[in-house]
Nucleic acid binder design. Structure first.
Length: 497
RNA sequence: GCCGCGUUCGUCUAGGGGUCUAGGACGCCGCCCUUUCACGGCGGUAGCACGGGUUCGAAUCCCGUACGCGGUACCA
């Protein structure tokens, strides 16, 4: 590659950044960094009816959170701005006119109703997908059928019009896709795509081609849903006399039940769709990035874990797979667990404090919090679960988990209270895990019962749960007073049951 | 319907004519470790969509079929 690589992520601000969009952005970014090139963000806000005010900010925020750096974009323009298509209206207009002059496009005055009528008519006569094409355009109202002065008159009168691409009648359009190889389409399957809408805005097709050229984009890396419109783009490049960029169409992310991962589908299957959801649900960005990178790509060895930086080094488009990839939420969680465990306790403590609403957690001793976290973090998938699982470190159990409570048998009360008597004699500062364990061993030996007979009821009494970190260490951390109080409470509330 | 693109364990994938009795990861199951739940370690489960070719030899190449997905807008 001789030219300096420049790629772009070009979302339309119609809502929150979709997880599939994030992956497209990621692949673009990885490709750019791999080749020492630039990653450009371009906002494709040409559909005013679907525009969402907060979307651009969400896109940028999501990208930042993921660690994707924007080299040029609306908030940090380079020399090819503006980076919002709505601000480039005149540019598109100029190029659309150029196409009219060269005879590659024409004005069309048909109303929506007239278009509907045409389609309906064709459908009735057995054409399942009616097009505005080289045949039908001859019976429509456009600058190709109308006398020249009539066209002129309509334009001057300010009549609404669109500009359409004059797709050749019969031509095979070929292009090479980096991921898929040679792809070809016949022009007769294409319709005379609207390039400039009646509101003066360009359609995606025009804006995209013009901008990619003007912004010196070398590689277009986008979702597979664009593959079928690529021939139209190729036609446009040709009409302008421009060299098309390299094309790469990414496989789509699929829902576990099949079909592309749409909002509705994903949510009903418990998969968050927007990047924002992952942020709010406290996923680790490194985990999402690593997971997404591997959804449709692999470096070819047996490795699974890579930082963003490493991914930049490893990523190549020829290793992207062709088939759609099903989103596997469990694997994402696995990645999240991995990255979570790599975070030092101190840092994790800070994170927990940031997201916790709990007074006791907020006011907890720093070292105490970090120690609790070190015991808990092997057991959870996400940071926010830390607090829930470790709540007993900070406050007495409100209620007892009903499932392990079944282990509280008739003899439990006697065993637990015997153990309580044993530890009552311990000093506050001698209240440590080793001794606590010895005492317990003493009790079970004397009563000739198994460990679990006392362990489980004791665990329930102290933590309210049937699982969790090492009980003796937990009790040591909690301190004698707290442990005694909790046992008292359990004994009185569970004795008769 | 038409056009296009795809199809290796349940899922993500490695594989690019012989080294594949198909490798790894997630999941699931079992064992070990362990007071519990986890972590970790070890082991197991399961796949080349189908049918024809080409070839001494095909998961790998070609052609069909099936299935899936995408597109078919003055949406991107």
């Amino acid at each position: 590659m001789k030219e300096k690589v420049r790629v772009r992520f070009a979302p339309s601000p119609t809502g929150f950044l979709h997880i599939g969009g994030l992956r497209t952005a990621l692949y673009n970014y990885l490709f750019a960094r791999h080749h020492g090139g630039s990653f450009i963000l371009r906002i494709e806000d040409t559909d005013q009816t679907r525009y969402v005010e907060a979307a651009e900010e969400d896109i940028i925020h999501s990208l930042n959170w993921s660690g994707i750096e924007i080299d040029e974009g609306p908030q940090n323009p380079g020399e090819f701005g503006p980076y919002r298509q709505s601000e480039r209206k005149e540019i598109y207009h100029k190029y659309a006119l150029q196409l009219i002059e060269s005879g590659d496009a024409y004005y069309a005055f048909d109303t929506t109703e007239e278009l509907d009528q045409m389609r309906e008519r064709l459908q009735k006569s057995g054409n399942p997908s009616p097009k505005y094409d080289s045949v039908t355009r001859q019976s429509m109202k456009n600058s190709l059928t109308l006398p020249q002065d009539e066209t002129q008159r309509r334009l001057e009168a300010g009549e609404e019009y669109v500009i359409r691409l004059k797709v050749p009648r019969r031509e095979v359009i070929r292009f090479e896709d980096i991921i898929r190889g040679n792809v070809s389409f016949e022009s007769k399957g294409l319709d005379d795509q609207v390039l400039l809408k009646s509101d003066g805005m360009p359609t995606y097709h025009l804006a995209n081609v013009v901008d990619d050229h003007l912004m010196k984009i070398t590689h277009v890396i986008r979702g597979e849903e664009w593959l079928s419109s690529t021939p139209k783009h190729i036609l446009l490049y040709k009409a302008f006399g421009w060299e098309p960029p390299h094309m790469a169409h990414l496989p789509l992310i699929m829902s576990p039940s099949g079909g592309k991962l749409s909002k509705r589908k994903a949510e009903s299957e418990g998969i968050p769709v927007n990047t924002k959801d992952y942020i709010e649900q406290h996923y680790e960005p490194e985990a999402l990035v690593n997971f997404l990178a591997y959804l449709g790509w692999s470096p070819g060895d047996d490795s699974e874990i890579h930082s963003l930086e490493e991914l930049c080094k490893l990523f190549t488009l020829d290793r992207v797979s062709k088939g759609g990839a099903v989103f596997n939420h469990k694997k994402l969680l696995w990645y999240n667990e991995h990255y979570l465990r790599e975070i030092p306790d101190q840092q994790l403590a800070k994170k927990v404090r940031e997201i916790s609403q709990n007074e006791a957690v907020q006011s907890a001793d720093e070292a105490y919090l970090a120690r609790a976290i070190s015991l808990l973090k092997e057991r959870v998938s996400k940071v926010d679960e830390l607090e829930k699982m470790g709540s007993f470190f900070f406050e007495d159990p409100e209620e007892y988990d009903p499932k392990p409570l079944k282990k509280w048998k008739k003899d439990s009360t006697a065993l637990v209270s015997e153990y309580q008597k044993e530890i009552e004699s311990m000093d506050d500062d001698g209240f440590e895990a080793g001794t606590l364990k010895q005492k317990l061993e003493g009790v079970i030996e004397r009563n000739e019962v198994g460990f679990g007979k006392l362990m489980m009821p004791l665990r329930i009494a102290v933590t309210g749960q049937g699982f969790g970190p090492d009980l003796f260490i937990s009790m040591e951390m909690l301190g004698k007073e707290t442990v005694m109080r909790r046992i008292d409470r359990a004994l009185s509330s569970l004795a008769q049951e």
